[in-house]
Design a protein around this nucleic acid. Structure first.
Lengths: 107, 107
DNA sequence: CCAATTCATACCCCAATGGATATATGTTGA
DNA sequence: TCAACATATATCCATTGGGGTATGAATTGG
């Protein structure tokens, strides 16, 4: 199931990877070297995480000489925002679901 | 790193598990047997997924005789909603970040 | 009281994944 | 041209995790 939601959740489920994405959102674009400094893992691992983030559409990379500048693309988060909103929406239609359940069982 | 965000993302990253949660949001509470019917996996696997969803706070279970009724708790999604909103928020302060990057490199 | 039912737990297996190190590729500066 | 640098790729390893089957525990109906 190569679903968009699955890819997004899976990509963001790793703390190291999510931290990289957060830094790019907070502080703007950065090179691989700069990202490696505070990542707590080796440079190849950072590159691998960036590759996964890129495949998920969450970051994009631009080559400048021997450096690569990565920047966040938070628009890619919109499926997640939509999904969470939809789940909450479904729930609103049954706001008293728990009470109903308790009543049903209690009778 | 037992972070809340990590747990939520990880829990929702599995399609089978997310489908169970979605069904509970859409259709209200269900027993393990009812959930197993359309899950595509065996009952023990469904129970295991429910256990993980419960640990993440996304569902709650109530015993009624030999059945267990599970219901969704979409309020547990709020950290996700907050996180995505915050990431987008950070980004707004640098809406022209990509253009700046291109300009910087292009010069 | 016993058999069937419902769910949870235990155990095993295999694929996926995050990490490391080594190395390849490409780029700049002297 | 050549050495240093920046990044990507390759390979390996240990762990995680999702799936299955078998079985335990609890409850109900006859």
């Amino acid at each position: 199931m190569s679903d968009t939601h699955t890819i997004l959740f899976k990509t963001l489920s790793d703390p190291t990877r999510r931290a990289i994405f957060e830094r790019l959102c907070r502080e703007g674009d950065k090179t691989v070297g700069a990202l490696t400094e505070h990542a707590g893992v080796s440079q190849p691992v950072v590159s691998k995480h960036l590759r996964i983030l890129k495949q998920a559409g969450l970051v994009s990379g631009l080559h400048e000489g021997r450096q690569t500048h990565y920047s966040a693309q938070p628009d890619a988060l919109s499926p997640l925002r939509d999904w969470t909103a939809q789940m909450a929406e479904f729930w609103e239609g049954r706001f008293d679901a728990l009470e109903n359940l308790l009543k049903r069982i209690d009778q």
